[in-house]
Every structure is written in C-alpha cells, then in structure tokens.
Design a protein around this nucleic acid. Structure first.
Length: 476
RNA sequence: CGGGGCGUGGCCCAGUCUGGCUCAGGGCGCCGCGUUCGGGACGCGGAGGUCCCCGGUUCAAAUCCGGGCGCCCCGACCA
C-alpha cells in the first residue's frame, strides 16, 4: 500500500495533488497559482515536447519565438478575442522605474503579435503558407489554479499558420488535430475523442475550434489539445493580406493550435493508480529502474557486476540503477512505483546464482506483475515488455472510458450519466439547451464528435429535431 | 468573487476552547555510528523552531482581543 497517498476512491482531487507532489513532478511556488515544474516533471514534459516537435517538423513546420510582452491595444483589435481574454490578462504598467506610456499585456496567447508580424512578412501568395510553431510560456490570471491543469503561468506550444485559401487552412486545422490525437494515443496511451467545440466553448476569436477530449480516472473530461480555424478574423484585425496569382489583394486564412503542460496532468490522471503514477513507457523519463539487492559486501560486488552488465546491454533504453545504500529494496520498490517507472528489474544474490533477473511491471501490481527472466534474455525481453505495457495502458484506458460512457435518451439518464462519465446524446445545437444542462449538472458539451452515429434524433433537452450528437461531461 | 479550512523545526500535526506548571512537544525526514537489506528495517546518539506578521489585554500570550498577510479545498470563467 502506498503510505501517505490518499486513495482515488476516497478523494480523487486530493490523490491528484498528492501524487503530483510526492512523485516530485511539481511543487507550489511562492506566488499563488504558480508552480515549479521539478526535474522529474520537466523531463516528462521534455519527452512530450520532443514527440510533438518531431511531428511538427515532419509536417513542415518551423519553430520561432515571439515576445512575452504585447502592446495592450493589440489585444483589443479583435472584438471577441478581447472579451474572451480581458478578465485573465496580466498587464505590466511600470518599467525602468517609470509608468509606461502604453501598458503591456503579458501574452495569454500570441495570435495578436504573430498577426502583426505576419502582416509584415506576407505579401504574395508565394509567401504562403506560413507554418510556424513556438514553444513558450503564457500567463492567464486564473481564479482557481490546480497543478498542471490550470496554473497562472504555463508552458505550451502554439502553432500559427497562414494560408491562401479557406480550404487549405481547414485542412491544416484538421491535420494538426490528427497529429495531436495520434500523439496522445501512441505516445501517451491516452485515448481521445476528436470533435468540434460548441459555440460557447470555442476559442475567443476563432471561427471554429476543434478538440481532443480525454477521460480522466474519475470520469471527468479534459481538453487535451485544441486546433482553431481562425477564418479571416485575425487577418482582418491585423491586416494580413497577400496578392493572389490574379493580382487581387486578399486576406489570409489563419489557424492556431496548442497543447500545454496541462497534458502532463492528463497523463497522471488517465493512468495513475493508488500506488502513484504509471507513466507510459514512451514518455517516461526513466523507463526501467534496476534495484540491486545485497546483504554484505561480497554479495554487493557480485550483484553490482551483473547490474552494470545489464545496464550496458540496455543502453538504448532510459535505465536508472538505484544503488543507494540508505534504503531497503522494499522502500525503493514503493518509491519507484510512486514515481510511475513502467518496468523494474530486481537483481539479488538468488538471481545471480540462477543467472536470472526479476522483472516487475508497474501496470500489474504485486506478485502477478513479476516474472523471472534469464539474464541472457533480458535485453530482448525489456523492450518487448515496455511495448506491452504501452499497449495495455492504452487498452485499459479505452476500456475504462467505454465503461463510463452512456448513451442516454432522457434527461434523467443524461444527468445520471454525467455524474460518472461521458454521455453521448442528441443535441439540437442551441446554447439554451446546452446551458440548461450545465446549470443542472455542471456538465458541459465537451465536443460534437466527428464520429457520429448517423441519422437524426430528438434533442435530449428540448426534444426538438437534432442532427448531431454531443458528448456531455463534467470537465477540468 | 461567494463558502469552508489552515498557518507551530524540512514535512505532517498535537497543544489554543480553559493564559503560567508536564507549553515549546510528537511522528516522519535529516546528520553520525552500528546492526540490517527479496515489498516502506532497527538501536543508540545528535542537529534543527522570531509558534505567519503587526498591534493590544495581562505580572505572564502559541493560547485571549483587534487588524493584516498568505496558502489550500469546494462552487461561477478558462489550455
């Protein structure tokens, strides 16, 4: 049993806070709403980052960096955008010991500055498309912060592209949503539902927003990545124009898309159990931990000989050897389980004698997850087992989501369904019906999934004609 | 912003109601030595605190009173 860790059943959000801190992913900073991402948490984020960055490059994007400070009036140029962000804006009013003539917004997102620069850089259809991504921090003054899920400052990636045609921009929006979904499922083993945001949930200033929604371990939804079709809204506000092949001056079609450190929270909540984190092998900072066991110096020498051999043979894998003297093996087992390392290798005197090692899978607790493997077979078994763990985490998450997903046909069923998970239901498309559900149950429309059952139905709220189903859920 | 909780060695907390004496304590962690080591070891010794801050009451305040600050949790906005 994990000592000092609240069980998920007892209090899920407490479990989350404790596991994040005890596993040393993050800690509270002295400023309210801010957190320190500790080395272990940052290593996890770096792996997320590397996996995404690889995919961005493969789809033709390049990285750049735009500044943290944005002239205040930029924020005001796109009407819906200002309205969306003004409550959570941090504003710098002083600099160099003087009050600034024009206040500077600390970016909550970079559409505006980037729009300004794109207007300078883009003149001809030959300059298009512009496919830029930036890795940055942003600040949003949130009312209710939570580690990783909602912090005042967070890290993310924001892609900003400009295109000559609406169709091309739309393709980009979908392409990047697909990249996110593929990343989430294959790297993080987090199954997601792709869909469109309802009008009330979409990004301020976008024509349409698309999302990948994942189910957390308590049945609540987490928006894990978004891709926005900005239409010509920002192009108009910032005068991003180009001359087409016919010599006509036109506004560009722009997109933006992002995934943030919030995604780390998703990984924690999708896979973790009452012992602590369970990290998907592909993203785990440490994929394999080797715990040597000995009683005296002779055994120690013997065991460590085998251990260093193993480490060498596993050099293509992220392996750590825990040879700390001051802790017993049992303590180490628990600690590495708390930290979510997917695979543990135990090597003790018995194993040395039998020319074997004991492999313990993090996703299968206790004795059941342990197996003895001949030393010669370990280098082959480890990658195979990591793949199996990756696979099984994904399958388990899908099964959990399906088990917690309902297809209600009445309001009573809907209300009951959102208390424990996702509810797919016909929706007429009106904000009134959406709002009614939110008021009664605090559940919102997470998305209108691309994968629809087909046909038509009656709106679960008003009974009016409905062409689409929406996924309702309580969300983070 | 509304509701609730909390501030006491690094961490978790007792003590506060009923002021003083056993009121500066416990557990964990940390340092040293020894024995241990296959699922969170044990013994002995040790270091470490302006009791959140300011003011007041009192012979006497961690404790009572006033004010302030901070943090966490639960609700309305958001990646």
């Amino acid at each position: 049993m994990a000592k000092d860790l609240t069980s998920r059943a007892e209090d899920y959000s407490r479990w989350y806070n404790e596991v994040v801190q005890q596993a040393e992913l993050a800690d509270y900073a002295p400023v309210r709403g801010c957190m320190v991402i500790r080395p272990y948490g940052f290593a996890l984020w770096e792996n997320v980052k590397a996996a995404l960055d690889r995919r961005f490059k493969a789809t033709g994007h390049v990285n750049a960096y735009f500044p943290l400070f944005i002239p205040m009036d930029f924020m005001e140029r796109e009407a819906e955008h200002v309205e969306g962000f003004s409550p959570e804006l941090a504003v710098v009013t002083h600099g160099g010991g003087k009050e600034l003539e024009e206040p500077l917004a600390v970016r909550p997102t970079s559409e505006t500055v980037i729009g300004h620069m794109y207007a300078k850089w883009i003149q001809s259809y030959r300059d298009l498309p512009v496919l830029i991504n930036q890795w940055a921090n942003v600040v949003r003054w949130e009312m209710r912060p939570r580690l990783f899920l909602r912090t005042t400052e967070f890290l993310w990636q924001e892609g900003h592209t400009a295109h000559a045609t609406r169709e091309e921009a739309e393709r980009e929006v979908m392409r990047m949503l697909d990249v996110y979904a593929e990343f989430a499922e294959t790297e993080a083993a987090v199954p997601v539902i792709k869909g469109r945001k309802s009008a009330s949930e979409k990004f301020a200033g976008a024509g349409a927003s698309y999302t990948i929604e994942a189910m957390m371990g308590d049945g609540r939804a987490l928006q894990s990545g978004t891709s926005h079709d900005l239409g010509q809204n920002f192009a108009r506000a910032f005068d991003i124009t180009f001359q087409d092949a016919d010599g006509e001056l036109q506004h560009c079609w722009t997109t933006s898309w992002g995934i943030s450190t919030r995604f780390v929270g998703a990984v924690v909540m999708v896979h973790g159990d009452d012992q602590g984190l369970i990290l998907p092998p592909k993203l785990a900072p440490t994929q394999v931990v080797i715990v040597p066991i000995w009683r005296d110096d002779d055994e120690r020498a013997e065991v460590m000989g085998v251990v260093s051999g193993l480490k060498e043979e596993l050099r293509t894998i992220r392996v750590e050897v825990d040879d700390r003297e001051q802790h017993t093996p049992g303590f180490k087992f628990n600690e590495w389980e708390l930290r979510g390392v997917p695979l543990r290798i135990e090597v003790g005197p018995r194993d040395v004698k039998n020319r074997q090692a004991v492999l313990a899978r993090r996703d299968v607790p206790g004795r059941e997850g342990k197996s003895a493997v001949a030393l010669a077979d370990v280098p082959g078994a480890v990658p195979r087992m990591l793949d199996e763990i990756q696979e099984s985490l994904y399958r388990r998450a899908v099964a959990f989501r399906e088990e917690r997903t309902a297809r209600p046909t009445s309001r009573e069923e809907l209300d009951k369904a959102v208390a424990r998970g996702f509810a797919w239901a016909w929706w007429c498309g009106s904000a009134e019906c959406e709002g009614r559900v939110k008021e009664d149950t605090s559940a919102t429309i997470r998305c209108i999934p691309f994968e629809q059952p087909g046909g038509e139905g009656e709106c679960i709220v008003c009974g009016g004609p409905a062409e689409e189903q929406a996924v309702f859920a309580r969300a983070y």
